[in-house]
Design a protein around this nucleic acid. Structure first.
Length: 422
RNA sequence: GGAGAGAUGGCAGAGUCCGGUUGAACGCGCCGCACUCGAAAUGCGGUUUACUCUUUUGAGUAACGGGGGUUCGAAUCCCUCUCUCUCCGCCA
């Protein structure tokens, strides 16, 4: 969340940032609430100060053997007042917090201002368009002929959007996950973690899924736990309510997880095959860094995600999101889009974001500076490195041959044990 | 699922029975200064966080796992929730 004092001091910046993101916020009611809260809080503190002072006197008086009935009677009244004020202040604080949690993060100054997806900016492209001397098939056709997945039976078990991978398809999925996790650990020094897939509310609030997007999440009623939409949630939660040492930063984690998304409101979009799913697999990179380094860390994070696609020899482009397309919690974000020759589309396989202190404040994730030993919030970043379903689409469609077989990129062969899918 | 024990500051660990200058002893760590060519050792001083008010200085309030209660006053008493540990049961 945005620091309250920042909102007080620079409300226009907050309004402008939210407006550029296309978010409607009501700062006036928040600021009024804040004023009321502070004024009551001051009265409350004065009363408590009085009570503390007199209570101490009572203790001393009793110590000398005298009674202090008058003071006790007076403090009874004061305590009653305190109790009433505490209730009011508590209600206001809750309302204030709830409003605060719904204020989006502000875009970084470098983010292009835009009205919609059209205004995103392609930063760079990598790889040449694969030349086919036949008409490339879609991943659906390839998957069917090679018997890699079975969407009908997946839907029979769980509903549409829950793919069932079979045989070499299942193994390919597992190989991709292993390949990516190993790469980030071995080449870039990430620490591998295997997080829980169900999390408490607090973890979802920290990363920004709650309270605003509860309807997009799978929720288990009885235990009040949420299925994670991304490993970002549990992995960012790892250091919640902690004070880290600056010398331990940056902390870098890589995690595989299944991801669960209700995709409420996106019915009819990308409905076929592996393009949009309720459950999918993803390898996620999460960094905790010092504020001064977070934009450099965003660059390296993006580069590391890109290197997965490079190693697999897949054509892709890096897109800088404009303000309108930036997510609620993000200050700046690069999307990686891989080219799928069968679909003839760019497919988003990664989002690399800097959240600055937005998540850290929500989750109370801080660090102690080396120079002055002061405590401040870390910056958090994360990026997919990368998500498998669309990666699999691009892989199959890119490496297909006319005879319907699919070559396996060399880097993947040790993980899969075969050179082609036939 | 059953029975029991516990949760205190960066760490470790008193205080809880018998509520009152205890934001919290002693120690470790950390920071500063002194001594030293330098280091170690030693000595001295300092060392929680959040919020509010204040131009600076400073002052106040809150927090001993979370929430609630009793009381003039709660780390300390009561209730409740969460978590951790031990034993039993069940189980991949």
């Amino acid at each position: 969340m945005i620091h309250l004092s920042f909102i007080r001091e620079q409300p226009d910046k907050v309004r402008k940032g939210a407006k550029n993101k296309g978010e409607v916020i009501d700062l006036d009611s928040l600021l009024n609430l804040d004023n009321e809260h502070r004024s009551l809080l001051n009265s409350l503190n004065e009363l408590r100060a009085e009570r503390n002072r007199v209570s101490e006197e009572i203790g001393k008086t009793k110590g000398t053997g005298k009674d202090a009935l008058d003071s006790i009677q007076a403090m009874k009244k004061v305590s009653q007042q305190i109790k009433e004020l505490e209730e009011k202040v508590g209600v206001l604080a809750e309302q204030l917090n709830s409003k605060l949690l719904r204020i989006p993060n502000l875009p970084h100054d470098s983010v292009p201002i835009g009205k919609n997806v059209e205004d995103n900016v392609v930063i760079r492209e990598w790889g040449d368009e694969h030349q086919f001397d036949f008409t490339p098939k879609s991943h659906l056709e390839l998957g069917a002929s090679l018997n890699l997945f079975d969407f009908e039976r997946g839907a029979k078990i769980s509903g549409s959007g829950f793919p069932l991978y079979i045989g070499k398809g299942a193994k390919l999925e597992r190989a991709l996950i292993n390949f990516m996790v190993d790469m980030h650990v071995d080449q870039y020094g990430y620490t591998e973690v295997f997080p829980p897939f169900l999390v408490r509310r607090e973890a979802m609030v920290t990363t920004g899924q709650l309270p605003k997007f509860e309807e997009d999440m799978y929720h288990t009623e009885v235990d009040d736990l949420f299925l994670i939409p991304t490993a970002e949630v549990p992995v960012t939660g790892i250091h919640g309510n902690e004070i880290l040492e600056e010398e331990d930063l940056p902390i870098k984690y890589v995690a595989y997880s299944a991801c669960f998304r209700r995709e409420a409101g996106s019915y009819g979009k990308d409905t076929h095959g592996l393009l949009r799913l309720h459950q999918f697999n993803k390898v996620e990179l999460v960094k905790y860094v010092t504020p001064g380094s977070s934009y450099d860390e965003l660059e390296s994070l993006t580069a590391q995600a890109e290197s997965v696609l490079q190693a697999l020899g897949l054509r892709y482009r890096v897109v800088e999101l404009c303000t309108a397309d930036l997510s609620f919690a993000s200050a700046k974000c690069f999307d990686l889009e891989v080219w799928a020759p069968g679909e003839k589309k760019w497919l988003e396989v990664s989002s690399c974001s800097n959240f600055e202190g937005f998540q850290a404040r929500r989750g109370n994730i801080r660090y102690r500076r080396e120079d002055n030993r002061k405590v401040e919030c870390v910056h958090t970043l994360n990026g997919s490195g990368v998500a498998t379903p669309r990666l699999l689409v691009a892989l199959l469609e890119t490496y297909q041959r006319e005879d319907g077989r699919v070559e396996i990129p060399e880097v993947l062969q040790p993980h899969l044990g075969i050179k082609e899918l036939a």
